[in-house]
C-alpha cells in the first residue's frame, strides 16, 4: 500500500472511532426528546427511539403540573439580570485592576484569587443565614446576588482584566488628552473595544445562572418562584418516583432552545469557555 492509502485508511478508522465515541454524547438528547413524546406505558415498555404513538399531551400536562411557564420566565429574567449586572461590575473592576495603579490593588487581587479557590459549598451555609437575616428567603435575590459577587463574578472580573491588560495603553491616554475622565475612558474607549470579552463573559455568565441548582434548591420553596433546573427535578409522583414522560418533555423544553442557540453560535460559545478556562 502506498503511504497515501495508509493515511486514508488511518483517517477512516479515526472517523469511525470518533463516531462511535459520539454516541453517548448525542444519544441522550435524542432519547430525551423521544421520551418526552411517549405515553407512560411506552416509557416502561420495550424502548424504541421513535415513539409508537406520539403523545403531544405530555407538553400540555407539563404546564398543568407546575407553573412551568412562570418558572421558565424566572430562569430567563434571573439569568439576564445576573448577566447584565456581572458585565457592568466585572468590567468596572477588571478595568481598574488592569489599568490603574492604586494602593491595595495587589491585596484585592489576592482576595479574588482566594474567592476562586474556595468552593461555594463552604460559604453557602453562612450565606444562607445572611440571606435569611435579610428576609430574602424564597425570593430571587440570592440567585442574583450570590452569582454576581461569587466565584462566577470573579472569573468574569479576571477575564475582563485580562482583556484590558492587552488593550493598547496609548489609546486610553489619547482619550485622557482628549478630555475624558476615567469613567469616560472606560465608557467611551475601553468598553467599545472590549466587545469580544464582554460577549464571552455574557455567554458563560448566562449559562451559569441558567443551570444553577444548589442555590435555588436551598433558597426557594414556592413553586411559582422555582427556576428551570429545580422545576425539572420536581416532576415526581406522590411516591417521589419520576413522572418520566412529563419530566422528559419539560427537560426537552428547557434544553432544546439552548441547544439550538449553541448550534448556531457554537464557535463563539466554545471560545468563551476556552477563554474562561484558561483564566481559571
Amino acid at each position: 500500500m502506498t503511504p497515501r492509502r495508509i493515511e486514508t485508511l488511518y483517517r477512516i478508522c479515526w472517523t469511525v472511532a470518533l463516531l462511535l465515541l459520539a454516541v453517548p454524547f448525542v444519544f441522550p438528547f435524542l432519547w430525551m426528546i423521544s421520551g418526552g413524546f411517549k405515553s407512560t406505558t411506552e416509557i416502561f415498555g420495550a424502548p424504541t427511539l421513535i415513539p409508537r404513538v406520539w403523545r403531544f399531551e405530555n407538553f400540555a400536562e407539563v404546564f398543568a403540573y407546575q407553573p412551568f411557564a412562570r418558572q421558565y420566565f424566572n430562569s430567563l429574567y434571573i439569568a439576564a439580570t445576573v448577566t447584565v449586572l456581572t458585565l457592568f461590575i466585572a468590567s468596572l473592576a477588571g478595568y481598574a485592576l488592569a489599568r490603574i495603579r492604586f494602593a491595595g490593588a495587589g491585596l484585592l487581587m489576592l482576595f479574588l484569587v482566594m474567592a476562586l479557590m474556595v468552593p461555594e459549598e463552604v460559604t453557602i451555609i453562612p450565606n444562607f443565614f445572611l440571606i435569611r437575616a435579610m428576609g430574602l428567603i424564597d425570593t430571587h435575590w440570592p440567585l442574583i446576588l450570590l452569582p454576581v459577587f461569587g466565584p462566577q463574578g470573579v472569573v468574569a472580573t479576571f477575564l475582563m482584566r485580562q482583556f484590558f491588560l492587552a488593550l493598547p495603553r496609548e489609546l486610553e491616554e489619547a482619550g485622557k488628552m482628549d478630555g475624558l475622565s476615567r469613567f469616560g475612558v472606560w465608557r467611551k474607549i475601553a468598553l467599545p473595544m472590549a466587545r469580544p470579552a464582554l460577549a464571552a463573559v455574557a455567554i458563560i455568565t448566562f449559562l451559569h445562572s441558567w443551570n444553577l441548582f444548589l442555590e435555588p434548591l436551598i433558597f426557594l420553596s414556592s413553586l411559582d418562584k422555582f427556576t428551570l433546573p429545580l422545576a425539572l427535578s420536581n416532576f415526581n409522583d406522590s411516591y417521589g418516583l419520576p413522572l418520566w414522560n412529563l419530566q422528559l418533555a419539560a427537560t426537552s423544553l428547557a434544553v432544546v432552545p439552548i441547544l439550538i442557540i449553541y448550534l448556531i453560535a457554537q464557535r463563539q460559545i466554545i471560545e468563551s469557555f476556552a477563554l474562561s478556562g484558561v483564566k481559571g
Binding site: P168, E170, L171, E173, A174, K176, M177, D178, G179, L180
Partner: peptide, 14 residues
Amino acid sequence: AAKRGVAMVFQSYA
C-alpha cells in the same frame, strides 16, 4: 492632562 492646553501625537498613533 486635558486642561493643560497640550495635545499629543503618540508613537502608535492611538
